[in-house]
Design a protein around this nucleic acid. Sequence first.
DNA 1: AATGAATGAGGCTTCATTCAT
DNA 2: GATGAATGAAGCCTCATTCAT
Lengths: 184, 184, 184, 184
Amino acid sequence: MDAALDCFVERGFYGTAMPQIAEKAGVAAGTIYHYFDSKEALVNALYRSWKTVVAQRVFMKFPQEASVREQFRVMWHEMIAFAMEEPRAFAFIELHNHASYLDAESVAVDRNLKDFARGVIQLAQTQGLIKPVDATVLMELSFGAFVGMMRAHWERRIELTPEVIAKAEEACWDTVSAHPGTPA
Amino acid sequence: MDAALDCFVERGFYGTAMPQIAEKAGVAAGTIYHYFDSKEALVNALYRSWKTVVAQRVFMKFPQEASVREQFRVMWHEMIAFAMEEPRAFAFIELHNHASYLDAESVAVDRNLKDFARGVIQLAQTQGLIKPVDATVLMELSFGAFVGMMRAHWERRIELTPEVIAKAEEACWDTVSAHPGTPA
Amino acid sequence: MDAALDCFVERGFYGTAMPQIAEKAGVAAGTIYHYFDSKEALVNALYRSWKTVVAQRVFMKFPQEASVREQFRVMWHEMIAFAMEEPRAFAFIELHNHASYLDAESVAVDRNLKDFARGVIQLAQTQGLIKPVDATVLMELSFGAFVGMMRAHWERRIELTPEVIAKAEEACWDTVSAHPGTPA
Amino acid sequence: MDAALDCFVERGFYGTAMPQIAEKAGVAAGTIYHYFDSKEALVNALYRSWKTVVAQRVFMKFPQEASVREQFRVMWHEMIAFAMEEPRAFAFIELHNHASYLDAESVAVDRNLKDFARGVIQLAQTQGLIKPVDATVLMELSFGAFVGMMRAHWERRIELTPEVIAKAEEACWDTVSAHPGTPA
DNA sequence: AATGAATGAGGCTTCATTCAT
DNA sequence: GATGAATGAAGCCTCATTCAT
């Protein structure tokens, strides 16, 4: 249900009432329960659905054979592209704290993408291209920087032109690179 | 009310019931209303209170005369120190999306610290020490990286040893530095 | 909701709890809110509904062509009939002070009937049949006398036999008549 | 407590909170309980106090030796005078339905004045000066007319000039008089 | 005597969920 | 499959009352 996304983005899980979602969707309140067992089931389905979309995009576009620098760039731009095309979905999955109602499966879907990214980093570390720091830390720093930028964009505190995006990507590469500042 | 912090951290604003807070605080539900007009007033007071603590720490310790590199390091460590000493407060103010219930004053307090950080960055940019990118973007990237790391720490996905912290700080400096990789 | 009438009559608007109404109606408390937005909406709907019933009765039965004396008698007996047939409704709309929660529309409905009655009096004054006193004053005196009698009846301090009613009607006619005491 | 009068007049007994009364009185909430055992005790004390004032006025001024017509006039004007001098007190005791919280003593005080008035009427009836109708009915009609007029005055729907008051008094006399329309 | 913080029951209202249609 | 009225527990908040100061 796409209406649920709107509601959850705006007021969070607990702040959203099922009748509100139903109204925005143009259906009766009871109808939702034909498709989802409960409010939690709905939010988890929504979360998994969008997390999977992101993962699909990143996995599909990931250039296995390209250089690490290029791989980083592609992943980064893919996530930006998603965040720009589906701002509400991005805000929902990344700008809210879901800890208290996500089920095991949703958590697993989330870990999937992060594990993949960490794997890429770890591989690159063996080649000396990435800083010799715990890969999870680097991944979180890098992803956190990205999320921070997108949050500012969501709150209209910055404007993301292609140039800004490119510069920000370089800056994030510097975050993880073993040889930052080196021309791509 | 310190009990409110616990509750809000765990389940967010809408997910927390006033009686829950009262019980955790060991007082009657009605008592809270002697000190706060409403649940919203409470969450705003809490938010402002802790945001102010962070701002105080950063402002007090900020080395006006030191090098930009040193200034960055101090600010970063000051925030880390706060996040480690008051993990719940940090999780509350940075790991949740407060957009729908913060009042104007709370928003202003938040902007205060960010404006300060941006000012520091802008000044350093005139000296050519920081990347020539929109200062807000750099600030959000850097702060976002920090928050991302702390979120991973909060979720026990990474462990923050002094060494990891130092390395992470360097990585974040590389994010904004015009000459990353240069020894401090 | 007819149960609301019972409750409001007995303890007034503020003295009545929604759950009490729900219980008396044999429904759940929440059910009331499918039909009325709030307690105030409920009391206003109830007030308007009954005021309209009274107005309808008086308007329908009003003998446009009859003598003023006959018109007065008809209006008076129509109101008595209503008060006797629907004692709770009458007690609710006339024996309570609604000032603090009636909305504009409810006030308008009320004014409707009083304007009509005043108009009748004013017309009769031009014929010299009614005392040359401000029509509103006469109307309020007359209606007040009626309400006073009904209040005493409600409180079981008097018994209203047909004979008493007829005598009271005559007395009230004397109140407004320019030639009281004249045989009808 | 004079502040209580203001509150009760405006929103009734159940609609008024003790802290509101305390605030308006400029004292602490607890202070009220030094003088009154409960909210009900307070409202009953207030009711009795003012009812007694009215009774005192009427009894004191009642011209035992004068004509019935004069007695009626005096009682009527005495009540008008009270209602004009203490409009809030009058509105409180006569414009609200107190049935659900008045105690036995308060009811007795009320009955006192009405019994007196009825006695006067009954005596006059033996002289053939008053209509041969149940005395209580006549008394309620007359008093109801008075209250109706004062309610309209309270709601600013009429203006009570001395002339209007005199005319209204005559009209009310006609209500009860066995020979209405006869010059005083 | 006066205070006002504290209480906790209870009031109004919302909401996730059910179920007869 | 879809509806939406109904439910009743639970949420936010108020309030009469108490009591330590």
